[in-house]
């Protein structure tokens, strides 16, 4: 139904897209270290060396781990496999609560201890009215 030229052009476009996709894939794959926004506590544990650069650690705030002192807040970030202690002085976002997602930016003292300079709350993908949440919580 279509001429030979049309078929050739379709082949050309398909190959072009394939080439670009593969190139982009390779670039992103090699840059993965920088594309990820934060590391999990488990990944911190397996780090070869502790760099003095700023680093972001993300996970869940461990339940009953938040301790608030005069101008300092201590808590534990967990990914349910490993844990890391975090110290931070300053105000935390409103959505920062135990059992919810958090991203802490700061400097690693060792593989178990992070001094944070910024705390971000990570929101999850669940959206529901308070009544529904209560009903779910009762179960």
């Amino acid at each position: 139904m279509y001429g030979k030229k049309v078929k050739l052009r379709i082949l050309f476009i398909s190959l072009l897209l394939l080439i670009i996709s593969l190139t982009v894939f390779l670039i992103l794959k090699s840059l993965e270290e920088n594309v990820v926004y934060f590391k999990s506590p488990t990944e911190i544990k397996t780090l070869n060396e502790i760099q003095s650069k700023k680093i972001r650690v993300g996970g869940m705030v461990k339940k009953k781990s938040v301790v608030i002192k005069s101008n300092e807040i201590n808590f534990v970030i967990t990914d349910l496999k490993s844990e890391i202690n975090v110290t931070y002085s300053g105000s935390v976002p409103n959505l920062f609560t135990e059992g919810k997602g958090v991203v802490a930016e700061g400097f690693l003292k060792d593989r178990n201890y992070l001094v944070a300079t910024k705390i971000l709350a990570k929101h999850d993908e669940n959206y529901m009215p308070p009544e529904v949440k209560e009903a779910l919580g009762d179960k």
Binding site: Y37, P93, N94, L95, L120, A121
Partner: peptide, 12 residues
């Protein structure tokens, strides 16, 4: 701003 605590993040 009200949820994350920042208005911008260079995430993917």
């Amino acid at each position: 701003i009200p949820t994350w605590g920042t208005w911008w993040a260079w995430d993917a």
